[in-house]
Design a protein around this nucleic acid. Structure first.
Lengths: 164, 164
DNA sequence: ATAATTGAGTTCTATTTTGGAACTCATTAT
DNA sequence: ATAATGAGTTCCAAAATAGAACTCAATTAT
């Protein structure tokens, strides 16, 4: 497997790695959600090199998470905004932030918070099933290979399949 | 910011990038959740080089997501299993898989599914607030800098702050 | 009128990471 | 005695990243 072009992979997680599978991209998205839109602001806030930032923004645009739009002419300047696809990434950020806060402890206080627009309270993100409302985690959900052959291939070496 | 040691960052998302901020680590975790435990199985299933795999497993172990435990002696052999911290990563995988499935379309059929142990039905992961049950997404949640100065610094260049 | 600044990149070289293949080492199977 | 397993390690080439400097158009400051 090559570093490039995970975009053809059957596994959605692998395709996602083609977009956010590096040190910076998720942090760029974080900045987007904080309201940052311009090249130099991303660059200064993140400390990323201009070279890489340009590359990553191009990728996020080509993958449909950001769109580049002019905010002035003379001189022509563009800003980067989240598209619907980019905005829909918010739950992933919420889940990951929640995991990291609990599992990668730090002395430092959180530099930001996720707040409900309605209640104005800090939220605690939990993943649930749309249909049943049941909480989804390693105790309640099983990851099963679609191909029974693949399941067998794994099971051959395992007492039983699942998130033990 | 250096490529290494995001572990001291104040932002939990940045610290998370120190663990899963590369092409492979999340895919290794996917394999863990599918039930894979041994070095050669990860290697063959992912097509990752043995070199990098060893490196990544070492990191996942040192960050507390996996533990290495002997499954036989003579010759001594180890397997890698999810720790509690690793298992708690499941919701992140669910959210990301859901996002990618909708936003990075593919011809290929999904190679696996997330199934409720209880209902045995395929789940649809939604992020909600533990307290209110409210669905959390870009429409309902706001990301706010903890430091009011930081908020102002961003707002200076923006009509208004928030996930617009 | 000339010089400095802003904003958004691009180019260049030096380091680091990654990819790929081959090699090790202890034990077991043939 | 020879080959195969399992879990790595070592080595070299290729690709990605870091860091700094450079471009270019237009605008503001002197």
């Amino acid at each position: 497997m090559k570093w490039h072009d995970l975009s053809e992979e059957a596994c959605p997680l692998a395709r996602a790695m083609g977009v956010v599978g590096d040190r910076w991209t998720l942090l760029i998205l974080r900045e987007c959600f904080l309201g940052v839109r311009r090249f130099d602001h991303y660059q200064k806030r993140l400390g990323i090199t201009r070279h890489l930032l340009a590359e990553r923004l191009k990728r996020l645009e080509s993958m449909g998470l950001l769109e580049k739009r002019p905010y002035q002419e003379r001189p022509l300047r563009h800003e980067y905004r989240l598209t619907m696809s980019g905005k829909e990434f918010a739950p992933v950020l919420l889940a990951m932030q929640h995991w990291a806060q609990r599992n990668l402890p730090s002395e430092e206080p959180m530099p930001f918070a996720f707040v409900s627009r309605e209640s104005e309270k800090v939220v605690e993100p939990v993943v649930t099933d749309r249909d049943s409302g049941e909480e989804l985690n390693h105790r309640t959900v099983l990851m099963v290979p679609a191909d029974p052959e693949a399941a067998k291939a794994i099971a051959k070496h395992l007492p039983q399949l699942g998130w033990k």
